[in-house]
Amino acid sequence: SADYSSLTVVQLKDLLTKRNLSVGGLKNEWVQRLIKDDEES
């Protein structure tokens, strides 16, 4: 899986927004959300 934890907050928020995922919570929660989205898609 991609190394989301190395991305900036701005990059992570951009990815979350593009995938229609929530940008609520902490940075590590966003990373988990993106990883989960990868596994489900």
Rank of each mutant, 00 (worst) to 15 (best):
D3K: 09
A2Q: 14
T17I: 15
G25N: 03
L26R: 11
T17Y: 06
T8M: 02
L16E: 03
K18W: 01
D37K: 06
T8V: 05
I35N: 06
N28M: 08
R19M: 04
K13G: 05
S1R: 13
K27W: 07
L21I: 06
L7N: 04
Q32Y: 00
W30C: 07
K36W: 10
S41M: 13
R33Q: 07
G25Y: 01
V10S: 15
E40N: 12
D3R: 08
K36Q: 13
S1G: 14
K27Q: 09
D3A: 06
R19L: 06
I35E: 10
K27G: 06
S1K: 14
R33N: 06
G25K: 01
A2H: 13
K27R: 08
V10C: 14
E29K: 02
T17W: 04
Q11M: 08
D14I: 08
T17N: 11
E29S: 05
D3H: 09
D38E: 04
S41R: 15
V10P: 13
D37F: 15
N28G: 11
E39T: 09
N28F: 11
S5M: 13
T8I: 02
T8S: 15
S6E: 12
L12H: 00
K27T: 09
L16Y: 00
V31M: 06
Y4S: 03
Y4T: 03
G25C: 06
V9G: 10
L12C: 00
L34K: 00
K27N: 06
S22M: 06
W30L: 15
K18P: 00
K27A: 08
L21A: 04
N20C: 10
G24D: 15
D3Q: 07
R33K: 06
S6Y: 08
L34P: 01
V10Y: 02
R19D: 05
L34A: 01
S1A: 14
L34V: 02
K18H: 09
L34I: 05
V31C: 06
S22Q: 08
D14W: 03
L12M: 05
Y4G: 03
S5H: 14
V10A: 15
N20W: 01
A2G: 11
A2Y: 14
L15W: 02
E40I: 12
A2I: 15
L26H: 15
G25M: 01
L7C: 12
W30R: 03
L34M: 03
V31I: 15
I35C: 08
D3T: 05
I35V: 10
Q11G: 04
V31N: 02
S6G: 12
V31G: 03
Q32E: 14
L16G: 01
Q32F: 00
T8P: 07
K27M: 09
L16P: 00
V10L: 12
V10F: 03
Y4R: 02
L15T: 03
G24A: 15
V9K: 08
K13A: 07
E39N: 10
D38Q: 04
